[in-house]
Lab assay of single mutants.
Amino acid sequence: MAAAAAAGAGPEMVRGQVFDVGPRYTNLSYIGEGAYGMVCSAYDNVNKVRVAIKKISPFEHQTYCQRTLREIKILLRFRHENIIGINDIIRAPTIEQMKDVYIVQDLMETDLYKLLKTQHLSNDHICYFLYQILRGLKYIHSANVLHRDLKPSNLLLNTTCDLKICDFGLARVADPDHDHTGFLTEYVATRWYRAPEIMLNSKGYTKSIDIWSVGCILAEMLSNRPIFPGKHYLDQLNHILGILGSPSQEDLNCIINLKARNYLLSLPHKNKVPWNRLFPNADSKALDLLDKMLTFNPHKRIEVEQALAHPYLEQYYDPSDEPIAEAPFKFDMELDDLPKEKLKELIFEETARFQPGYRS
């Protein structure tokens, strides 16, 4: 834990890192770190609560700039109880001085990944967590956004079992017609939660990839272990087919990539493993919904509104309290091709509203 900075004593240090967030945020305490930044909790002297502050230093890398800009653009436009918001952003007053960006968010005690390492969940908890994931996802999908990296560590939890989806750095506007060349190379989302079509096709992607990830998360809540822990690309596919069985001819016809289709045709026939054999203690309604989410063919996979209306979630289902976005989200430009200098300018502009004396 960093010592509390005395008023006016300059930035606090946390594990050798400068955290320049005073005077409003003090009493910093280390939480963890990701690929390009550290997260601390801090005391907000204005709202009198502890908050989470993520320090991001992305400006050396085009990919990190892209992810940072995506996350900020999306989260500043989203407003939903099951999606983490941005409360404040701290950065230098000029673009030349801006080396880091500090993002202030609600402090959540833990995440689903940490929880599943230590606790076996009751059916009631599984049901409530799944409902909140789908409630947040309904809003995301209504904005025409794909999260693309749903996994237990991106689901934040607090002691009252509130759940918030975080990390929109890989999110995209849904565009089933656009052929994202190089899709697989830039697709760094965790393999275990990846839909089979991501490994088999490169053309376009749809909201059904997020539903697949939610199915993987439900299976993990039922058993405290990942359902498809593939060691590499082909191993991942083999794990999936080992449980779902061989795809039907109709399902194979959806695979545009001939090499991928021929690979699947070359494999020995596998039978589907019954879900109640894998999860003998699970609620039968939970397994019915799991089956509809972990469907090989993305066109037959359940959609988020149908999933919310499934009998497993009937005690929570309330369409009048499951809000959607006001308007579909649009990125003005494809960020993939922009140089990091341009992305830095866009991050600077996007964060201006939090600067003292800002006038829109």
Score class of each variant (00 low, 15 high):
Asp318Ser: 14
Ile165Val: 04
Thr26Asn: 02
Glu303Tyr: 14
Gly245Leu: 02
Ala195Ile: 06
Pro58Ile: 14
Thr63Lys: 04
Pro247Ile: 14
Pro339Tyr: 09
Arg172Pro: 04
Gln315Val: 15
Glu349Gly: 11
Lys292Pro: 04
Pro23Asp: 14
Ser29Pro: 06
Gly136Tyr: 07
Ile84His: 04
Thr110Tyr: 08
Gln119Pro: 09
Ile140Thr: 15
Val188Ala: 02
Tyr205Phe: 00
Gly34Ala: 03
Tyr312His: 09
Pro268Met: 11
Ile217Gly: 03
Ala307Lys: 08
Ile90Gln: 15
Glu186Gly: 06
Val173Phe: 06
Ile83Cys: 14
Pro229Asp: 08
Glu314Ser: 12
Glu303Ala: 11
Phe354Ser: 04
Leu107Thr: 04
Pro274Phe: 15
Leu121Ala: 10
Leu222Arg: 03
Ile86Tyr: 11
Ala2Ser: 06
Leu170Arg: 06
Lys272Asn: 00
Met108Ile: 00
Phe296Asp: 04
Leu267His: 13
Cys127Ile: 08
Tyr205Met: 01
Glu60His: 15
Gly22Asn: 13
Gly245Lys: 03
Ser320Asp: 09
Ala309Lys: 14
Ala286Tyr: 15
Gln249Thr: 13
Leu112Asp: 04
Leu287Val: 14
Ala42Ile: 07
Thr118Ser: 01
Asp291Tyr: 00
Lys55Phe: 11
Ile126Lys: 10
Thr160Asn: 12
Asp149Gly: 03
Lys117Asn: 00
Arg225Ser: 00
Ser213Asn: 01
Lys344Asp: 04
Leu150Lys: 05
Ser248Phe: 04
Val188Asp: 01
Gln315Ile: 13
Val18Thr: 15
Ala42Asp: 14
Lys259Trp: 06
Arg301Leu: 02
Lys292Ala: 12
Phe168Ser: 01
Cys161Arg: 03
Pro280Thr: 00
Asn87Gly: 13
Arg50Met: 01
Leu218Ser: 01
Glu250Gln: 14
Ala92Cys: 15
Thr110Val: 08
Phe59Leu: 00
Asn144Phe: 09
Ile72His: 10
Leu130Glu: 03
Leu234Ala: 08
Lys164Tyr: 06
Gly8Arg: 07
Leu346Arg: 14
Ala4His: 14
Leu346Asp: 06
Asn82Asp: 08
Pro229Thr: 00
Pro298Ser: 07
Tyr316Leu: 10
Glu81Asp: 00
Leu170Gln: 02
Met199Cys: 06
Ile324Lys: 13
Met98Asn: 13
Ala174Ile: 12
Asn257Leu: 07
Ala260Gln: 12
Glu314Asp: 03
Leu234Ile: 04
Ile133Gly: 08
Leu146Asp: 04
Trp275His: 07
Glu81Ser: 10
Val39Asn: 05
Ile74Glu: 04
Pro274Cys: 10
Gly136Ile: 07
Thr159Lys: 05
Ser142Pro: 07
Ile95Cys: 13
Leu155Pro: 03
Lys300Cys: 08
Val51Glu: 10
Thr206Ala: 05
Arg24Ile: 13
Lys285Asp: 13
Cys127His: 12
Asn262Gln: 07
Ile227Cys: 09
Pro328Met: 08
Ala309Ser: 01
Lys344Gln: 14
Glu341Pro: 10
Asn45Met: 15
Ser246Phe: 13
Arg148Ala: 02
Tyr25Leu: 06
Lys54Gly: 03
Ile256Arg: 08
Gly8Lys: 07
Trp212Asp: 02
Phe348Ala: 12
Gly182Leu: 03
Gly230Asp: 00
Tyr128Phe: 00
Trp192Thr: 02
Val14Lys: 09
Leu121Asn: 09
Ala327Tyr: 15
Cys127Gln: 09
Tyr205Lys: 01
Pro176Met: 08
Gln66Trp: 03
Glu109Cys: 08
Arg148Cys: 02
Gly169Lys: 05
Val21Arg: 06
Phe129Tyr: 01
Val104Tyr: 06
Gln355Arg: 07
Leu69Val: 08
Pro280Cys: 06
Trp275Asn: 03
Ile31Phe: 01
Ala325Leu: 11
Ile89Thr: 11
Leu241Thr: 10
Phe228Ser: 02
Gly8Gln: 05
Ala143Pro: 06
Arg50Glu: 06
Ala309Asn: 14
Asn271Val: 11
Gln66Gly: 08
Leu264Val: 13
Thr190Met: 05
Tyr128Ser: 08
Glu345Trp: 15
Lys54Asn: 00
Pro356Asp: 10
Ala143Asp: 01
Cys254Thr: 10
Pro152His: 00
Ala352Phe: 15
Gln132Arg: 04
Asn87Asp: 12
Gly16Ser: 11
Leu267Lys: 14
Asp321Val: 01
Ile95Lys: 12
Asn82Thr: 06
Gly8Met: 15
Glu349Met: 14
Phe78Pro: 07
Asp88His: 10
Tyr36Pro: 04
Phe279Asp: 09
Arg277Cys: 09
Leu290Gly: 02
Asp179Trp: 10
His178Met: 06
Asp124Glu: 01
Asp179Met: 06
Ser360Met: 03
Gln97Pro: 07
Thr206Tyr: 04
Ile227Gln: 12
Lys285His: 10
Leu234His: 07
Ile90Pro: 15
Leu308Trp: 06
Leu75Ile: 15
Asp291Arg: 06
Thr206Glu: 03
Ala42Gly: 13
Pro339Trp: 08
Leu289Trp: 04
Val104Cys: 14
Met293Leu: 01
Phe354Glu: 04
Ser57Asp: 11
Leu134Thr: 07
Asp332Ser: 12
Ala9Met: 15
Ser360Ile: 07
Leu241Lys: 07
Glu186Arg: 04
Arg135Phe: 14
Lys114Ile: 00
His141Cys: 09
Val46Arg: 12
Pro323Ile: 15
Ala171Glu: 03
Asp318Tyr: 01
Gln62Lys: 00
Asp100Cys: 14
Thr185Phe: 03
Gln105Ala: 09
Val49Pro: 11
His61Leu: 00
Arg15Asn: 09
Pro58Ala: 13
Leu244Ile: 13
Gly85Gln: 13
Lys99Tyr: 09
Arg70Gln: 04
Ile140Met: 07
Trp192Tyr: 01
Lys54Ile: 01
His125Arg: 00
Tyr193Lys: 02
Gln132Met: 10
Ile255Ser: 07
Ser208Ala: 02
Ser246Ala: 10
Ser202Glu: 03
Ser122Cys: 03
Asn82Glu: 07
Lys270His: 13
Thr159Gln: 04
